[in-house]
C-alpha cells in the first residue's frame, strides 16, 4: 500500500542520507521524496511516498524513522485530510499544427507554458500526483521529450474529518 509520510528532521549534513539509507537497509521502496526548509530555523521537512506491504511493515518503518537521532517527528498522513502538491515540468513535442489542440487539452489542468521553441513547449503543472499522472497521459500521444517531477510535498489540513484512522506508534 502507498503511504505518505512526513518527517521533521534537524537540518544536519547527512540527514537525507541517513533517512534514505535507513529505508534502503530495511528494504522499503521509496516512490518519491522531497526535502526543504521549514518555518523553524535548522529544521527541514521531508515528505516521502513509500510502498509498504502491510500494517506491520508500516509500523516498523515509522518506528525506525523515529529512532533516528536527527528525526524529530514522524507522521503518516495518508488517512488524514491533506493538501498534497507536486510540480512537474514536461517538454512536449508541439509542431505548429497541433499547438492549438494541445493548448485546449491542457487548459483544464491550469498548466502553464514556461518555455517554448519552434517545435517544443515546456509545461509546468502542479497538483496532487493523480492530476499530474492524468496530465502526462493526455500529452503522451504528442510525444514527451523530457519530464521531471519534484516529488510530493504535503500538509495536514487544519480541519480534520471527525474520524481518521491512526496507526499506533508506540
Amino acid at each position: 500500500m502507498k503511504r505518505i509520510i512526513t518527517t521533521t528532521v534537524i537540518n544536519q549534513s547527512g540527514v537525507l542520507n541517513r533517512v534514505t539509507g535507513l529505508l534502503m537497509k530495511r528494504q522499503f521502496n521509496i516512490e518519491s521524496i522531497s526535502v526543504g526548509h521549514t518555518e523553524q530555523p535548522g529544521m527541514s521537512k521531508m515528505t516521502f511516498v513509500v510502498n509498504v506491504e502491510d500494517k506491520e511493515k508500516l509500523e516498523q518503518l515509522l518506528k525506525q524513522l523515529q529512532k533516528q537521532i536527527d528525526v524529530i517527528k514522524v507522521n503518516d498522513i495518508t488517512d488524514k485530510a491533506v493538501v498534497m502538491r507536486e510540480l512537474a515540468l514536461i517538454k512536449v513535442v508541439t509542431p505548429p499544427s497541433v499547438r492549438n489542440e494541445i493548448y485546449s487539452i491542457v487548459e483544464p489542468f491550469r498548466a502553464t507554458v514556461v518555455d517554448m521553441s519552434k517545435n517544443v513547449t515546456t509545461f509546468q503543472v502542479t497538483g496532487d500526483p493523480e492530476k499530474i499522472e492524468a496530465f502526462i497521459d493526455l500529452v503522451k500521444p504528442y510525444g514527451i521529450k523530457e519530464l521531471t517531477r519534484t516529488g510530493v510535498s504535503a500538509f495536514v489540513r487544519e480541519t480534520q474529518k471527525p474520524y481518521t484512522a491512526q496507526l499506533s506508534i508506540l
Binding site: E59, Q60, K63, I169, L170
Partner: peptide, 17 residues
C-alpha cells in the same frame, strides 16, 4: 527499551516500552 523491536518479528499483544 527500543520500541522498534516490539512487533518487528513477533505479533505482540502487550507492548511495554
Amino acid at each position: 527499551i527500543d520500541p522498534a523491536e516490539i512487533g518487528k518479528n513477533v505479533p505482540t499483544a502487550i507492548p511495554i516500552v
